[in-house]
């Protein structure tokens, strides 16, 4: 295998991994605060369509990505009000958010089907991407680097900062955190807001970087894979990075096998591969851990101040 092809494949892996990483890190922070938001797929779709719409009408992809974050964060607030203030069931509300996002994105996106959009370029000068090895370092979309920085930032925030400590306390024991005087609901609102913004950014990566176009259900269940990755990562940012790139590899294998006209398997089997891999990975991680021993203790439970 020649170097050019190898580099091209590795870059595809990074590209496929990045949205999973960004959305997954967002969800990881949300879950660390004790909230299970199953609406990632819906928020990603809202981000994807908003990003596309804004980038197409302004011609500036960065504005699209920012608008995507804003729109998905706004959608996450519907979820936050329902599960935090109104104490609704988190599983059901998350599902509702995904159904809502699917519908709303299809509604907003209808006029944009079949047109292309200006995409993100690379941020480094052309000269730096001349040779294949340099391209591997400098040739990615800015969001690929953002994903890596975000991993470090989230890891630092959760493990080294005071605010992160409070967030983890809220997720591990909401009533104790409340008794000490920490604002449980405020922390969770902010965490959900962050998770929404990251899901929106990840969604815009699909419509502005990976495939510069909009189609209904563009993200094809990747939001659910991001949620599964949080479990796979045992709620640790470093492992989230590994998991996202592992899935980037699985997705790339699918694309490469298709491109190479690899006919030993049916193309449908290749398309099903990421989902089958998710199930396999969840089974393996659960077998090793006996059911996610590292999960935040208050995950998914509503909080009501006792006094």
């Amino acid at each position: 295998m020649n170097l050019d092809l190898l580099v091209a494949i590795l870059m595809t892996v990074a590209g496929a991994a990045t949205p999973l990483l960004i959305a997954g890190l967002g969800e990881l922070v949300v879950e660390k605060s004790g909230v299970l938001n199953l609406g990632v797929e819906g928020m990603m779709l809202i981000g994807a369509v908003t990003g596309f719409a804004v980038a197409t009408s302004t011609g500036i992809p960065v504005l699209g990505a920012l608008a995507a974050m804003g729109a998905a964060a706004a959608a996450s607030m519907i979820f936050a009000v329902l599960v935090l203030t109104l104490m609704a069931n988190q599983v059901a509300t998350g599902l509702a958010l995904t159904i809502f996002g699917t519908g709303v994105s299809a509604l907003i996106g209808a006029p944009f089907v079949g047109i292309t959009t200006p995409t993100f370029g690379t941020i480094f000068p052309e000269a730096l991407t001349a040779s294949p090895l340099l391209r591997l370092v400098f040739g990615h979309s800015p969001l690929v680097y953002f994903g890596l920085i975000l991993t470090v930032a989230v890891a630092w925030f959760l493990n080294r900062s005071r605010a992160g400590l409070i967030l983890r306390a809220v997720g591990e024991s909401d009533s104790a955190a409340h008794a000490i005087g920490y604002p449980v609901l405020k922390v969770r609102y902010l965490a959900i807001l962050f998770g929404g913004a990251m899901a929106g950014l990840a969604g815009s990566y699909y419509s502005l970087v990976l495939t510069p176009m909009w189609a209904e259900r563009l993200t094809a269940g990747r939001g659910w894979i991001a949620i599964a990755l949080v479990v796979f990562a045992s709620w640790r940012p470093g492992r989230m990075l590994a998991g996202a790139y592992l899935f980037g590899l699985v997705i790339t294998m699918e694309l490469q096998a298709k491109a190479a006209g690899f006919n030993m398997f049916a193309p449908e089997l290749l398309a099903a591969l990421p989902y089958l891999a998710t199930i396999a990975v969840l089974a393996i991680i659960s077998a090793a851990k006996r059911g996610g021993a590292n999960a935040p203790a208050c995950l998914g439970k509503p909080f009501r101040a006792a006094a």
């Binding site: 519907i78 009000v81 329902l82 109104l86 104490m87 609704a88 069931n89 059901a92 509300t93 599902l95 509702a96 958010l97 159904i99 809502f100 699917t102 519908g103 709303v104 299809a106 509604l107 209808a110 209904e216």
Partner: peptide, 22 residues
């Protein structure tokens, strides 16, 4: 009306149901 409107109405119904559940 776009066909996607159906999904939006359905999701809103679930949102409002969960909200009134309190």
């Amino acid at each position: 009306l776009p066909s996607a409107a159906t999904g939006v109405f359905q999701a809103m119904m679930l949102f409002f149901l969960l909200a009134t559940d309190i």
